[in-house]
């Protein structure tokens, strides 16, 4: 069983919504990013999305844009994302590690080389935000050959035909875009989210992970029973940005502990 499937089996057995924090590789710098990821794993994260910074992130709001720019300014590269996977595995991190980025990074690196290097380093899959199923045949073949999951996104605007097409190709989990919009921490879940998830549930047995707009423990609780996991990105970057340097790792760990339900404190 893949690490991703195993992670959902565990969280389902525990009756939990799995938590997948997102953090841009090289943000705020390479070493701090690794320390933050390890802290999030210690806080009970079920898997980690490692963001590969891109100069023109079309689906991201200001928070992830800032983190990407800061990482790039600090010299982050796609090769560094592979290094991060290798270093995290060497440090004993066992949870799924998923590389998340934009098409052009994969094209420039070489899709085949990216899949091979990521698999060798110990990554479990990819989320490519601007790669719809129509353009993904080659990448999907490469991922299947190396046993990696290519995670597709489904949006509230996706019609039934597209949902069928996507769920038929998808493996690992389906990334459900929680709002019609770009990434950012939001106060409330979209009213249409439960209906959207029901529509998906009827089409696939794959785990459903909701991302875009998730920032609070009550969001996670509200999704119990209708989704299998959440992806949280902007809200974590907000915590990093608002913490003094010496407090960053601890505050991020505290925040993720609240999301995973390890502590009850409200954030």
């Amino acid at each position: 069983m893949s690490r991703i499937s195993a992670a959902f089996t565990r969280s389902r057995d525990d009756g939990r919504v799995a938590v997948f924090p997102f953090l841009t590789v090289g943000y705020p710098d390479y070493d701090t990013h690794l320390a933050l990821v390890r802290a999030m794993v210690a806080a009970g994260a079920d898997g980690i999305e490692l963001g590969i910074p891109f100069s023109d992130p079309l689906a991201d709001g200001p928070t992830v844009q800032r983190a990407s720019q800061a990482a790039l300014a600090a010299g982050a590269t796609p090769a560094m994302a592979i290094d991060a996977v290798r270093d995290l595995r060497a440090a004993g991190v066992e949870v799924p590690l998923i590389l998340m980025g934009y098409c052009n990074t994969f094209l420039a690196y070489g899709e085949g080389r990216m899949v091979a290097d990521a698999a060798d380093a110990g990554a479990d899959g990819f989320i490519i935000v601007d790669l719809p199923p129509e353009e993904s045949d080659a990448m999907l073949d490469r991922c299947r050959t190396r046993g990696l999951d290519l995670v597709y996104l489904v949006a509230p605007t996706s019609d039934d035909g597209r949902i069928a097409e996507i769920t038929q190709r998808a493996s690992g989990f389906v990334y459900c875009v929680g709002v019609v919009g770009v990434t950012s921490a939001r106060d409330a879940l979209a009213a249409e989210l439960p209906g959207f998830l029901q529509r998906l549930r009827a089409k696939t047995a794959l785990p459903l992970v909701v991302g875009f707009g998730i920032s609070r423990p009550e969001h996670v609780r509200a999704l119990r029973g209708i989704a299998d996991g959440v992806a949280v990105g902007s809200a974590i970057i907000d915590v990093v940005e608002s913490s003094p340097r010496s407090e960053r790792v601890k505050r991020v760990q505290d925040y993720v502990e609240v999301l995973t339900g390890r502590t009850e404190a409200s954030v």
Binding site: L58, A59, D130, P132, A155, P156, T157, S158, R162, I166
Partner: peptide, 20 residues
């Protein structure tokens, strides 16, 4: 039909826009 001029063109956008 999918907007390709040889190897160029196509649609590389977030899923949210695909139906539109």
């Amino acid at each position: 039909a999918l907007g390709h001029f040889g190897p160029y063109g196509g649609r590389y956008v977030p899923e949210t826009l695909m139906v539109a």
